[in-house]
Write a protein that binds this DNA or RNA. Structure first.
Lengths: 314, 314
DNA sequence: AAGCTGAATGCACGAACGTGCAGAAAGGGT
DNA sequence: ACCCTTTCTGCACGTTCGTGCATTCAGCTT
């Protein structure tokens, strides 16, 4: 259609030749408002990519400190202290979406977890068309009330749409009721295929769950865990999870029974991804986050300023 | 200094979080105008990169045609027919600069020719800091009147500054007076070093000279060639040059005497660069351009619309 | 400390921009 | 062919932005 060509031409004239929208409108024989809208679509569809490349030497103190203390590249999102937790999450998610997109390339295999944080991120993605990329779900999302498919698949599909990528769902509950079921399923070829895909991830994206999060993670509130499961987690000093795989404050996971029934990737499995981006918003996540860092799950960390301060002040 | 941090923070808040300049000004406790200026520096210094990724399927007819006829990726710069040749060149150069920059990466070796076109391109570069890159001069620039160093080095240094790259000059005349001098020099280690660098180019950037260009290329006007040289070129049906290495309409170069005295890269040498970007503005360049295409010197072509039309209508 | 000079800041104004709204155009079904 | 629904367009308005100019600030010299 005629439209696409106009979008491209407008983008070129505006971003590569610095014409005003007025001038472009005359060029394309249309109104300035239309040009404004053309440019908006150009940005939304990823035709125009805007990237902020913060070289480390100008990054603020905080990011240096985090790099030094935990060995991860941090992106501290400046969030005015006045805004509430919900809006802060939204800001961080927007920032994360914009930061991640430039690093997505063709032939990527991107593992994506689900949860409130990833959902927020997915809602802010701007598209960047790539070829032959795959979005792969990191862990099952079903619980006793629902198969969780619509919720988690919405997240995945937004990623898929943004990058023009194939979406591979993991249609399983988050936790099996019995260890044996997991063992059995893990020998199924359909599952093996997913695990194989997961082990070829070029990037993994996830939030973190924290057992005493004030703004509770899905897992701890949404009917995934029984009362006794929660007690068991507490008994094993669990502080949080990544993709429904639990760990203690020191990052250790041994002997936590629930992991035997979880569909989430073990740390060994997850660490096969060279790039592991963790998005965190909210001071309540601090304990889970520390555990995830101790476990070495994270290579890049995107978090709000307040949580970042908490992290380095410990 | 405090400044850098503010530039980064402003860029993040503006481009990654969509705040207005007003809001950012309050955040940084400064005036909106200052924020406007901070953002301007963020763009100039390459902290913010803006890229237009024109996927082929929405590219206009012309670019497809050129791809089909000549096998090169074309970027047709829309230039309103009202503007003069000088301004058209400027537009094309601006466009070229913006198009090239996103493809420059760390560890790149970039060969750059000189001439009116490359000079214009160099003036429009926006910076993008990279590590360990090198700008290497493709051909000598001296003539009987001057060593040409200041002219060509200005071009090279603008590239070097923009990408934070080392600059390797080629302090030779464009043409030797005697074939023997060239042969002798080509055995010098200093020259061998340059040639070695050139053969490791990841990208080459050049314009084209055309013998009947209305807006004459430097080479044909600037005292580089004697009267008899011009006659000799005409006698061998030369239509143009790339980096002072001449060719005929069919791209052939055999038996053109002047090439034996030229410091420019042979086609064999030039083609070692996987990416060879040719920038052309002005209908007068059409014959030279066709020759360059016939010789297979070009992998990417950036040119104005009028010349593009001429090219496909032949 | 005073004086000088160049850079950085804020103000104010005009230019450039985004968007709700109402009307026009384009589909889609009967 | 008609009507209905949906999408697209241009206008008008309020907002946001860039920049010349006067002022202040910071760094240096004497």
């Amino acid at each position: 259609m005629r439209k696409d060509g106009d979008v491209l031409k407008a983008a070129q004239l505006y971003y590569l030749q610095d014409l005003t929208m007025d001038a472009i409108a005359r060029e394309l024989r249309t109104s300035r408002s239309t040009v404004s809208r053309l440019l908006a679509t150009a940005r939304e569809t990823g035709l125009v990519q805007i990237e902020v490349r913060s070289s480390l030497d100008m990054a603020p103190e905080l990011e240096h400190l985090i790099k030094k203390l935990f060995g991860v590249t941090a992106h501290v999102v400046p969030v005015p202290s006045s805004v509430g937790e919900a809006e802060a999450l939204d800001r961080v998610a927007l920032y994360a979406a914009r930061t991640i997109t430039p690093h997505v390339d063709s032939n990527a295999v991107i593992g994506v977890a689900w949860g409130a944080t990833m959902s927020a991120v997915s809602r802010h993605l701007t598209s960047k068309p790539t070829h032959n990329s795959v979005i792969v779900q990191l862990n099952g999302a079903g619980n006793t009330h629902s198969t969780g498919i619509s919720y988690s698949s919405e997240i995945l599909h937004r990623f898929g749409r943004a990058y023009g990528a194939r979406v591979e769902q993991f249609p399983l509950p988050a936790f099996f009721d019995h260890v044996e079921t997991r063992q059995a399923m893990w020998r199924e070829r359909s599952v093996e295929r997913m695990l194989d895909l997961q082990s070829r991830m070029s990037m993994a994206l996830f939030g973190v769950g924290s057992v005493e999060s004030g703004y509770p993670s899905h897992v701890y509130a949404g009917g995934y865990l029984e009362r006794e499961d929660l007690l068991s987690l507490a008994g094993h000093q669990v502080v949080g999870d990544v993709a429904t795989y639990f760990f203690r404050a020191d990052g250790s996971t041994d002997g936590i029974p629930l992991n035997g029934r979880s569909t989430g990737p073990s740390h060994e499995q997850l660490k096969k991804a060279p790039r592991r981006v963790c998005v965190v918003s909210g001071a309540g996540k601090i304990n889970g986050l520390k555990g995830a860092l101790a476990a070495g799950l994270v290579t890049e960390l995107i978090l709000d300023e307040k949580t970042a301060r908490l992290l380095v002040e410990s």
